[in-house]
Write a protein that binds this DNA or RNA. Structure first.
Length: 830
RNA sequence: GGGGAAGUGGCGGAACGGUAGACGCAGCCGCCUCAAAAGCGGCCGAGGUAACCCCUCAUGAGGGUUCAAAUCCCUCCUUCCCCA
């Protein structure tokens, strides 16, 4: 019995060799066909498990295959190192966030190497390094110059547990995305990035992103939420004030029976001048009861409620007086903070009118009707024909929307307008472990940007991190500064940036990670961008992936990047990994770690199993039985190749050159050569089509081993077998890089198999000598004919009609029609 | 409430309108062995048949398009994901 495969020492040996030789280093500027493949940079949370491994294994297999197909591959890795968990560790265990983060990075880097991934580590960086976040500050100032970063007081999502403000995207079901605490509303002065200035381009360019999953694009479209309509003004009676409202249904304007405004609406002080004291007090009570409620509660969870203000507004076209109500479901931040109430034609307005006894005025009827329907049981929300709408009566909804918009415009009471659900991106965080916002507040000069020469504004060490309030605000040496304009005393902004800021451009930093002249080198960016294949979880569909597109468009507008103004040409979302059908979590204690798996099964087996278990986009299940199949595979490869090993010394020198495929004579030999080429074709097709269903490729490798076993039993000295031995390392290289490298070396090669060319499939060796032609009668299989490929239609028909079973089914008749798919099937229709 | 994806043997899956179940896991039988493990070979959707052949049924349910549907279309059911 041959010695068993010692995966542990082989895997360690090659991981060390690859690190020593910089096997996966990419050139500064690509000289030929470049391929930039990137997995979303990880947050250094501590330990990697097999769920992470699935993501990185996929990216690694893609990178290795493309490299072997002759592309110049950039495959970098870094660390999204700012963020709350480091600070929480500081609060809970008194560990310095920087220390905690650094040790996690060291551990995770070790684990990534342990997985046998081929990254260009010379490009590694962590976003918490001053050399990185200085460029965050630099980019912030560039946005600031253009008016794309601005500060304003706004009601914000406040997490009472993490004591910080959250972006809308970080509020999940009314709760904090990180800690799950209930989110409240508060008013604070905050920094925003004006992503809304790019709303139209972010939406329109989705249509060009052919390499993105449709569902991700749909999510972004919904998030941007473009709607076309009319912005119109209602005059407030007995005042000179106006209330602006946006509607997509201008055709229902004559059906307005009330106006709903947010309790925070700026018109309220004006209303108070014309209403009774009792009404004014009631409004205040109502508003204060809502102040701490989250948006979700107000718009979805709470019952629609409201209060008549005592004031009336004037419909600009019908000149009707409509009561003004404050409601809990209209939000000051959305649109104009006011909504025209049309109970007959809007579900929410209908419910509200019923509850509060407001009139329901029908102005739209279905196209085939001429008069109002009997009292409505529910709102009629469809398009139709207008009734009771002055001279717009009789028009279709679509025509009336245009006509009414024009009339409003003519009388100066409105105009056509586009509204977006997308709101500006709030980036201020009252936290320590992030990029300080490079702004000073001078007693004389006001808001002053930190000059470029003074960047980076360093994060001070030894901050008092207690979990309450802003740590930076409690460090006088940090807060107190000189005004760069007047030299007087100034105070620093004590907020840090949302960590999504740094992850919106990190893919550019890999191109020149040590650059001191700019965030990236423009020549290298021109050479490498955009990212050819981006791989990461679907949970980032509207967060990171939208912010990155926004940033990149800004960079393109500034001329800092050239070519396409989209950063990611192709996007792939991998599915996650369960353990025995359950989600992996520390609390369940069912996390399958990288270290234990490497120890027990070897990482080549782990990588093969992760790719083999399911298509990569599907959820997969880690089971102990599942991986045994891949452990067997590895051992089987080893045994088969060891059987050939004694001949190595004699053949070694010869086998160093790429061998020609020997002529196969027996069917077992043909099977081996065919399986070899089929496997190569599968790997190439799955990669270049970007389907990445390597589960099928690995099944083809199983078949190759089966064919080789059969040939070995039959003719152990066969040249075809020896040829297969010489090719197997190349085929395995993208998926099981260690054993591939070891076998390659044992064949006598001195250079890395990962820098070799992948075998090009030979179609003539894939073709079969004899194929099975299926004969159907009326779509049901009635015979299988063993024929030569390329058989003509007439011959096929003649052979089929000679089959007894076919004749029996035809009952002596001639088929009326037939359909012939060459080399596949013949369907006879009776 | 809205949007999206998916339902195939005991299990993971394969089949990109043309032979349903590749490949693996589990199971069963055999070889090897004193024995076991490992390994190697074989069987493995359901029913009919002594049996090979062959026949019938079968891709969540029901309908449709087509010479031909797991695949395309419609309705429903279930599960998962995203958004509100």
């Amino acid at each position: 019995m041959a010695e068993p495969y010692d995966f542990k020492s082989v895997e360690r040996k090659w991981q060390e060799r690859w690190a020593r030789d910089h096997t996966y280093a990419a050139p500064r500027i690509p000289s030929r066909d470049k391929y930039y493949v990137l997995e979303m940079l990880p947050y250094p949370s501590g330990d990697l498990h097999v769920g992470h491994a699935k993501n990185y294994t996929l990216g690694d297999a893609v990178a290795r295959t493309m490299r072997m197909l002759g592309r110049e591959v950039l495959h970098p890795m870094g660390w999204d190192a700012f963020g709350l968990p480091a600070e929480n560790a500081a609060i809970e265990r008194g560990i310095d966030p920087a220390t905690w983060t650094r040790s996690n990075i060291a551990n995770m880097k070790r684990q990534l190497r342990l997985m046998g991934t081929g990254y260009d580590w010379s490009r590694e960086f962590a976003t918490c390094e001053p050399e990185y976040y200085r460029w965050n500050q630099w980019l912030f100032l560039r946005l600031y110059e253009r008016g794309l970063a601005y500060k304003r007081e706004a009601p914000v999502n406040w997490c009472p547990h993490d004591q910080t403000v959250l972006a809308n995207e970080q509020v999940i079901d009314g709760c904090c995305w990180r800690c799950g605490a209930h989110v409240e509303r508060r008013n604070l002065a905050q920094w925003f990035l004006k992503i809304t200035a790019y709303a139209d381009r972010l939406l329109a360019d989705l249509d060009r992103l052919d390499g993105w999953p449709e569902r991700t694009k749909t999510m972004q479209r919904n998030w941007i939420g473009r709607s076309e309509g009319v912005e119109l003004a209602f005059g407030v009676e007995r005042t000179k004030g106006r209330i602006e409202a946006f509607t997509t249904r201008a055709d229902t304007l004559f059906g307005v029976t009330f106006l709903a405004i947010a309790p925070e609406h700026p018109v309220i002080p004006l209303l108070k001048s014309v209403i009774s004291k009792k009404h004014a007090e009631a409004i205040d009570t109502f508003a204060s009861s809502l102040r701490s409620k989250s948006e979700l509660e107000r718009t979805s969870l709470m019952e629609k409620d409201g209060l008549f203000t005592g004031a009336y507004a004037l419909n600009p076209l019908s000149h009707e007086h409509v009561p003004i109500w404050v409601t809990n479901y209209v939000l000051a931040e959305y649109g104009t903070g006011a909504v025209m109430g049309v109970p007959a034609h809007d579900e929410r307005d209908f419910d509200f009118a019923r509850k509060h006894g407001l009139p329901i005025a029908q102005v739209i009827v279905p196209l085939h009707h001429r008069e109002a329907l009997a009292p409505l049981e529910e709102a009629f929300i469809g398009d139709g024909r207008l009734i009771a709408s002055d001279d717009f009566t009789g028009m279709s909804s679509a025509r009336a929307r245009k006509a009414i918009a024009q009339r409003l415009e003519a009388i100066g009471a409105g105009h056509e307008s586009v509204n977006y659900k997308l709101r500006d991106w709030l980036i201020s965080r009252q936290r320590y472990w992030g990029t300080p916002i490079p702004i000073l507040y001078c007693e004389k000069c006001g808001e002053v940007p930190v000059p470029e020469s003074e960047l980076p504004v360093l994060l001070p060490p030894n901050a008092p991190i207690t979990g309450e309030g802003s740590p930076l605000a409690r460090i006088p040496e940090f807060v107190n500064a000189r005004c760069p304009r007047c030299g007087g005393t100034a105070k620093r902004d004590t907020d840090t940036m949302d960590t999504f800021f740094e992850s919106s451009w990190y893919y550019l930093r890999y191109l020149s990670p040590r650059d001191t002249q700019g965030p990236w080198n423009r020549d290298e960016a021109a050479g490498w961008m955009n990212v050819d294949q981006y791989i990461g979880g679907a949970e980032h569909a509207v967060l990171h992936l939208l912010y990155s597109r926004f940033f990149y468009k800004f960079f393109a507008d500034r001329g800092w990047v050239t070519g396409d103004d989209e950063p990611f040409a192709h996007l792939f979302h991998q599915g996650f990994v369960l353990h025995d059908g359950e989600k992996m979590s520390k609390s369940r204690g069912n996390v399958v770690g990288i270290d234990e798996t490497a120890e027990r099964n070897g990482v080549d087996a782990m990588r093969l199993f992760l790719l083999y278990a399911t298509p990569p986009e599907d959820t997969s299940d880690w089971t102990d039985e599942g991986i045994t199949g891949r452990v067997r595979f590895i051992n089987r490869v080893w045994r088969l190749c060891e059987a050939c090993h004694p001949e190595r010394s004699a053949e070694g020198a010869k086998s160093r050159d790429r061998q020609e495929a020997p002529a196969a004579t027996t069917s077992a030999e043909k099977s081996v050569l065919r399986a070899l080429n089929v496997a190569a074709k599968s790997a190439i097709d799955e990669t270049t089509s970007r389907r990445f269903h390597y589960n099928t490729t690995i099944a083809r490798l199983d078949e190759l081993l089966n064919a080789m076993s059969a040939l070995q039993r039959e003719a152990p000295e066969s040249h075809a077998l020896r040829y297969a031995y010489s090719m197997i390392p190349l085929l395995l290289a993208p998926f099981a890089p260690h054993i591939a490298e070891e076998l390659w070396e044992r064949l006598g090669h001195t250079s890395s198999v990962h820098l070799e060319r992948f075998p090009q499939p030979d179609e003539s060796l894939i073709a079969l000598d004899e194929i099975t032609l299926v004969v159907q009668v009326n779509g049901k299989i009635r015979a299988r004919l063993a024929v030569q490929p390329g058989l003509g239609e007439a011959e096929a028909l003649a052979l089929a009609l000679a089959e007894p079973n076919v004749r029996a089914q035809l009952e002596g008749n001639k088929p009326r029609r037939h359909f012939y798919v060459p080399d596949k099937l013949l369907n006879l229709v009776r």
